[in-house]
Each structure stands twice: as C-alpha cells, then as structure tokens.
Design a protein around this nucleic acid. Structure first.
Length: 494
RNA sequence: CGGGGCGUGGCGCAGUCCGGUAGCGCACCUGCUUUGGGAGCAGGGGGCCGCAGGUUCGAAUCCUGUCACCCCGACCA
C-alpha cells in the first residue's frame, strides 16, 4: 500500500480531480484498458453488492420478479419507436461480424469479411425494445397482466467523455419493465418505484433527494412522463440518481402488444420502466466524503468495524488479538461485520489512515494500556471523534453508534442540501447564485422548452425536476417574465 | 471531428532544446531497529525509453510515419 494515499488534496481546488483520486486510492475502481470502461475492484463491488441486495429486497417486496433478457438487440427493433431511436442512436455499440480469422499476410487476427451479419446487433443501451418484443408473446389477455419484471444487467452507451461511476461506457444497473392493463395502474407503478428509489437512497445511502417530474425536454426517449430523484453533491452540482418512466402505450403499440380486455375489446398494454445504476456509487462518494477519504453509511459498509492493535513484540500482539477476537464474537452476534487488522508489515498510523480512506465506520484501537485497564479507544468515521470506553457492553455501544451514524450522516447531508436550495426571483440573481453559490435554485419558469433551452445555453443550468411537493404559487418566469404557477428546480449537474 | 498535452521499471516523474548507452521518489525484496496517527537505516531486484522506419561511429534525445491515452469543446446523464 502507498503513502501516496496521503495527499487527497483539498476538495475545493479541483473537485473532479479529487473525486477521481479518491475512487482510485480508496480501491473502489479504476480505468480499464478498454476506452471509457471501468474496472470495479473488490472493495467497490462489495459496496455495490450491498446496494443490490437492499434494492432487490425492495423490488421483491413490491411484487417484482427478476428475469434476464439478451445483451444483443436486432437493429430493426430500434426503428419501432421513433423517439427512442432518436434518443439512443448516437451512442450505440454495433456488432457487425461474428468471426475472426488469421490475416492472410500473417500480421495477426482480422475480422473475417465473409462473416458479416445479415442484420447488425446493437449492444443494449437499455432493454425496452427487446423486452417488449418478448412481452408480445407473454400478453394476450388482461388476465396476463400486470407483468412486473426486473433485470440486473450491464448496458453500453458509447459516451464521448467518461468519469468513473458517474458516466462509463459500460455500466451495471437494474432495469424494471412492467406491463399494465390501464393507464392509471401504470402511472401508479412508475410513481411507486420512484418512491422506492427515494426510500433506498435516503435510508441506505443517507443521501437526501428531491423527487419530481422531468420536463418534456429532459424526459426519457420514448416516455410520456419521467419521474426522477435528484441529489446534491458537495461541490454544489446535482446528480440525477434514479428515474422511473411512464411509457404510455408507446412500446405496446410499437411492438404490437395487444390484449383482450375485460369488456371483450382489444387494447395495447401500458408500460413503465425504471432503473438505477452504479452511478449511485458516485452519489455515495460525492455526498459524504471528506478530506480523509470515504465516509460510508454503516448499512452499506463492507466492513463496519475495524480493530487495530497497538503493540510491541509478538507476545503483546498475541494477547491483544486474543482480546479482539472475543470482542469480535460479540459484535458478530449482533450482525456487525468486523475485521481485525493484525498486519505486522504496516504500522498502526498507516492502518488508521487507510481505514479512514476506505470509510470504515467504526475503529476500535487496543493497546497495552487498554488491555491493563479493560478499555478500548472507539472512533467514528463521520465525525472522527474518539472516546475511551469500557469493554463491558461494547457490543451494545457499537451497535448504537452504528445506528446513530446512519441517521447522523443523513442529517448532515440534509442540512447541507437544504442550505443549498435558494429561491430566486430575478434573472440577475439566478446567474449570481449559480456562479457564487451553486446548488439548487427554485425559480419560476414559463413552462416552455424554448425558455428552458435558452437558460441552459446561457448558464449550463437545467431544470432538474418539477418537484412533486412544489406548492401552487403565482409568479413570473425568471427568464421570460411570463406567468408561472409554481417554482421548478434548477441546477448545474453531472 | 476541431484545439492543446503526453507516452521512460508496478505507480508518479526527470532526462529530450544542446545525441555518448538511463535516473529520482513511492511501491517491492532482505536484514536490523521501531510500533498510542501515514517509521528509520543499510543492502537488493526490476526498464528492447509507445511502435515502425530513417540520419549517425553512436538515438530516450534529431527526422518521418504511425498508434495509444489525457484535457478543453461538440455529444451525453
């Protein structure tokens, strides 16, 4: 391991650089040999697995089942829904051949020109088309509905510029795809799932979010309505953290998914889709980290408690580790994951720094003085506060501390987020707040795409959402001065 | 696809202008001393200098070509 871990520069100077360094140094992920693609390292993947498990439980609890659909999608499927192809065409990886051969001149391996595919295959950027092509065979009657499927998969979007976790050419996600009998039922489903996401992000990741509708301009390609959760990062930029779409009958019609209705007629199925991705890892990192490294919510930390011995000589080490093992048994009995760091090739100070960098929530240090006194030193990662406590009842103390941290990390993020929401009523103020403070801006908007785009062109700020809880309020558009009936949420974003 | 930058042990870099046969820090290995906040000393291993040509007695260095990657735009969330 490296002393180079030491220099996490101040976050204010260059937040992007700082973020990238942190992701790499904390051992979460790194760039791969493949352009724009990411290697998720074991520690990062362990966090992702915890997220997956929690989300999967929530999906099951809301009646969904997992399934799996193909990686490749015939090109023609994309032509079925005009908006959809428009939205994804520019970033698709295309498979054109199915065989390699040795180059005739011996220079290596080349694509066999005789092995050209009749129809090109697209590596899925999202799976609506292949799934609805399949649903056509599954749905004949209203009795077949609803269909509530989710798949855990990888997708590819050939982005020009990538950033670890936030935007990679290939990413891991889940995508739910449901089919319903009525418009109302589908809308209810889409709204239910955005609430599931908000629940997960707030209660597991400790990241507060604002739920709302996307504007027509920011809507998913092929959707009638898109719901989003928007989080705020510590540099004042917003991050779209999850979306849920009401797709109307667009895909039902595009793939001719008709069913016999209760009253003897025929109708097209109503659709939703919803997804969250490894981008959530980026949100987790950028929402809580400090200059010492990651701060992980206890519920998502692969290791919740690390124990570091302070010792001279093998005998002392042996005694301390024996004590630690007894404590570990008690902690594990409470479902707490524990690691005893008894490495003898690095010093304790190095271990402290390393575990802080990796965001381990609680550290227990035991040295000869503690051993004699029956105490330990306890430190919590979020506040870096240390206290000396008795070994008696340590399992209760640590369990309570982990619970408290889960709440406290969220509260801290919430206070920051709330302090970064500014109500703005003039164009001058809008630009000034955006440049000097950042964060979310609540302002009136005249509801037109022209104004939305003009604002984006001038300031790079976009409408993140029209919050569900935005109260009715008469006002004038901050840009055009035309009448508006509620405030919408603006921000610069990732 | 425009504009800029870079390619040298695992990582980060110096050396390139002005050619002389490769160096520094970290990491790694061995030993001793250390251990309550990122250890010290000593010794050691590892690089056809992105690739291909050319100039030259001699090329990391000069010339030509080529391939990567990074940053800023455009694209995208």
């Amino acid at each position: 391991m490296a002393k180079e871990l030491k220099d996490l520069t101040s976050r204010e100077e260059n937040y992007s650089q700082w973020y990238n360094d942190l992701v790499v140094k904390a051992g979460l992920a790194e760039n791969s040999a493949v352009r724009g693609c990411m290697v998720i390292k074991p520690y990062g993947y362990a966090i992702w697995e915890k997220m997956q498990r929690a989300l999967d439980d929530m999906f099951k609890a809301t009646g969904h089942q997992n399934a799996y659909f193909p990686l490749f999608i015939p090109k023609s499927f994309f032509s079925r829904e005009a908006d959809h192809v428009e939205g994804f065409a520019k970033e698709c990886a295309v498979v054109t051949h199915y065989r390699l051969m040795n180059a005739p001149d011996g220079s290596g391996v080349v694509v066999d020109p005789d092995a050209k595919l009749e129809e090109e295959l697209i590596v899925r950027p999202t799976s609506e088309t292949i799934i609805w092509n399949t649903y056509k065979n599954w749905i004949h009657s209203y009795r077949d509905l609803p269909i509530l499927c989710n798949q855990w998969a990888n997708v590819v979007r050939w982005e020009m510029r990538t950033r670890l976790f936030l935007r990679t050419a290939e990413f891991l996600w889940q995508e739910g795809h449901t089919a319903h009998e009525t418009r109302e039922e589908a809308i209810t489903e889409a709204q239910k799932m955005i609430r599931v996401y908000a629940d997960f992000v707030e209660n597991w990741m400790c990241v507060p979010v604002i739920m709302g509708n996307k504007t027509a301009n920011e809507r998913f390609a092929g959707a009638e309505d898109t719901y989003t959760i928007e989080a705020l990062m510590q540099d004042g930029k917003a991050l779209q953290s999850g979306t849920s779409h009401f797709l109307g009958q667009n895909f039902g019609k595009a793939f001719d998914v008709q069913f016999a209705t209760r009253d003897g007629g025929m109708d097209y199925a109503w659709a939703t889709s919803w997804g969250v991705s490894t981008r959530l890892m980026g949100a987790l990192i950028m929402a809580h980290s400090d200059n010492n490294g990651l701060v992980l919510p206890p519920k998502l930390a692969p290791i919740q408690v690390v124990m570091v011995p302070i010792y001279k000589g093998d005998d002392e080490l042996k005694n301390i580790v024996a004590e630690m093992e007894q404590i570990a048994v008690k902690l594990r009995a409470k479902g707490i994951s524990v690691k005893i760091d008894d490495r003898d090739n690095v010093r304790s100070g190095f271990k402290f720094a390393e575990h802080e960098l990796k965001g381990v929530p609680v550290r227990i240090v035991i040295g000869p003085r503690d051993l004699a006194a029956g105490t330990v030193e306890l430190m919590r990662r979020d506040t870096l506060e240390k206290e000396n406590i008795s070994v008696e009842g340590i399992d209760e103390t640590v369990a309570a501390m982990l619970d408290d941290m889960q709440r406290s990390i969220f509260q801290k993020a919430l206070r920051f987020r709330d302090s970064m929401i500014t109500k703005v009523d003039s164009w001058e103020e809008f630009k000034r707040v955006l440049d000097e403070k950042g964060g979310f801006i609540l302002a009136h908007w005249d509801g037109t795409t022209e104004t939305e785009i003009a604002i984006k062109d001038e300031t790079k700020a976009t409408i993140r959402c029209i919050p569900f809880d935005a109260p009715d309020e008469e006002g004038k558009c901050v840009y055009s001065g035309k009448p508006s009936h509620r405030r919408v949420l603006f921000a610069r974003n990732y």
